[in-house]
Simulated assay, not measured.
Amino acid sequence: MICKLHSCGCYQQLPFLFSTIGAGAVFLIFAIMMVFQLLFVIFIMPETKGNF
Rank of each mutant, 00 (worst) to 15 (best):
L5S: 05
S19D: 15
F43P: 00
G22H: 00
L28M: 03
Q12Y: 10
I32W: 03
G24W: 02
G24A: 11
M33Q: 10
G24V: 00
V26K: 02
M1D: 11
A23M: 08
F16W: 05
F30G: 06
M1V: 01
P46R: 13
I44S: 01
F27E: 15
V41W: 14
C10S: 09
A25P: 02
F43I: 01
F36R: 14
Q37T: 04
L14A: 07
Q13W: 04
T20I: 12
S7M: 14
P15G: 03
Y11F: 15
Q37W: 10
Q12I: 15
S7F: 06
V26D: 04
C3S: 05
F40S: 11
G50T: 07
A25Q: 09
T48Y: 05
Y11Q: 13
F27Q: 15
K4A: 12
I44G: 06
L14R: 09
L38V: 09
K4P: 00
M33F: 05
K4C: 04
L5Y: 13
L28T: 13
Q12R: 14
V26M: 08
P15F: 13
I29V: 08
A25Y: 05
F30L: 12
M45G: 02
Q12T: 12
F43V: 04
V35C: 09
I2D: 11
F43C: 02
I32D: 01
P46S: 15
P46Q: 10
E47K: 04
P46A: 13
I32A: 14
M34C: 15
L38F: 08
M34R: 15
Q37D: 10
Y11D: 11
P15R: 13
M33V: 05
G9S: 12
C8G: 12
S7W: 07
I29H: 03
M1Q: 08
T48D: 02
I29Q: 12
G22M: 06
F16C: 12
L28Q: 14
Q37P: 01
S19F: 03
F36H: 07
Q13K: 10
Q37N: 07
C8Q: 00
G9P: 01
S7A: 12
F16P: 01
P15Y: 08
V26R: 06
C8K: 08
Q13T: 06
I44C: 02
F27M: 14
Q37C: 00
F18L: 03
F30D: 13
M1F: 03
I21Y: 07
M34Q: 15
C10K: 14
L39Q: 04
E47G: 04
G22Y: 09
F18C: 09
M33C: 12
